[in-house]
Amino acid sequence: IQKARLIEKIAELLMARKLPLLEDIRDESAEDVRVVLVPKSRSVDPGILMESLFKLTELESRFPLNMNVLSRGKIPNVLSLKGVLKEWLEHRREVLIRRSRHRLGEIERRLEILAGYLIAYLNIDEVIRIIREEDEPKQVMMARWSLTDNQAEAILNMRLRALRKLEEFEIRKEFDGLTIEKKQIEALLASDARQWSTIKWEVSSIREKFGPETELGKRRTQFADAPEHDLTDIAHAMIEREPVTVVVSEKGWLRAMKGHLTDHSLLTFKEGDSLKLAFHAQTTDKVLVFTTGGKFYTIGADRLPGGRGHGEPIRIIVDMDNDQDIVTAFVHDPKRKLLLVSHDGNGFIVPEEEVVANTRKGK
């Protein structure tokens, strides 16, 4: 996450009044990163303030992990975490085999050249004579010592200063070393057990270099248990607390007027519509709407349309059936109990907390 972008985002939220617990943000970074968050007051809970920032900014990012992959590079498949790890190990084995075969090819080509050099050193005088006197020295050497084209070409390209006893010793040393390495690679390619043992060693080497205790691998951040906060408190923390007057019309239009109005005679409505009820609330409150269908709908007061127009029909805000009408609406009080009575005289008492709906479909 880019520090400048984060500060810019928080500043935008402050301007939009979506972080009511935060007064200001300052960048006091020097060599280290230092971003200062200034709360509105000393009474602000730091945990709730940070939770609101986590929810609204890139300080916390969540993303789904859908492991839909090409298994073995060919077969589309959705794998579990265990399956992905197994595929990775199989990939490491394939890389090991391909790398070993490539190295084996390089060794065989080099051994071919070195074998030609050794033949040249054993017959150095004859090689010099052929090069000086023959018109086609390459073909003559190939016929004389059964050399390959690559060997003969390498001998012809050999520099005179390489014709030293010390150079012959180095060639023999390299030849013997590559011969041993060739046998080791051939044994590796012929044994599954050796391959998995090599992969284990490679993974262990990576851990030694990038493990959590190393300078390169140590975590820059720490794991910790998520703080436990009331979700309601967090939701309220992201809403600017302001007084509003909720207005409900006879035809089911809702709006929230700024402030606590006492004179409702100045309210205007669409033609043929009129005031059904109005009550005071805060933008952090939940408004419960009870309908003739026996359902409760829950609407955040901050989500109600403003009071400049006539508001919006409730059916735009919640999924209320067309044959239902609003019976009443009020501010939610979690400690209160409600008495519900039907037209035929049956009724019951229900805790108000149990009628709060978290979806548009109501409860």
Rank of each mutant, 00 (worst) to 15 (best):
Y117R: 07
K82G: 05
S80P: 02
E134G: 00
L147W: 01
M67L: 15
I75G: 04
M141D: 07
L70D: 06
Y121M: 02
N66D: 13
Q139P: 05
I113Y: 09
R129K: 14
V95I: 15
L81Y: 08
R110V: 05
S80L: 05
Y117W: 06
N66E: 14
I113V: 15
Y121Q: 01
W88V: 12
T148S: 08
R103C: 01
E108M: 12
S80W: 02
K86F: 09
I131A: 00
E87G: 04
G105E: 15
D149Y: 05
L89N: 10
N123H: 03
L59Y: 03
F54G: 03
R132C: 09
E58S: 11
G83F: 01
K82L: 09
T57Y: 05
N77A: 15
S100T: 11
E94H: 15
E106L: 14
S100R: 07
I97A: 09
R62I: 10
V69M: 09
P76V: 04
R72P: 02
E126D: 10
K82M: 10
T57R: 06
L79P: 02
A143K: 12
F63S: 12
S61D: 14
S146M: 09
N68C: 08
M141I: 03
P137R: 01
N123E: 02
R62D: 09
K86R: 13
L89V: 11
L111S: 06
P137W: 01
I130M: 02
I131R: 01
H102T: 13
R72H: 14
Q139N: 14
E90L: 14
L96S: 07
E134L: 00
Q139L: 15
R110A: 06
L56W: 02
L59K: 06
F54A: 09
G116P: 00
M142K: 05
F54M: 11
E60H: 11
R132V: 10
N68H: 12
L56H: 05
L118E: 08
E106C: 08
R101A: 08
K55S: 13
M141V: 05
R103A: 02
L56D: 03
V84Y: 04
V78P: 02
E90K: 13
R99K: 14
I124G: 00
R144K: 08
E136W: 02
R144N: 00
E136A: 07
L81W: 07
I128R: 07
V95W: 14
R144A: 00
V78M: 12
S61V: 15
L56P: 03
G73F: 06
T57P: 04
D135P: 06
E94I: 13
V127C: 01
I128A: 10
I124S: 02
R110D: 06
G83A: 01
E94G: 15
V84I: 12
F54I: 05
K138V: 06
R98C: 06
E60S: 10
L65M: 13
Y117D: 03
D125T: 08
R110W: 05
I128Y: 03
E136I: 03
K86M: 13
I75H: 10
M67F: 13
S61Y: 11
L85G: 02
V78L: 11
D135I: 11
G105L: 12
I107A: 07
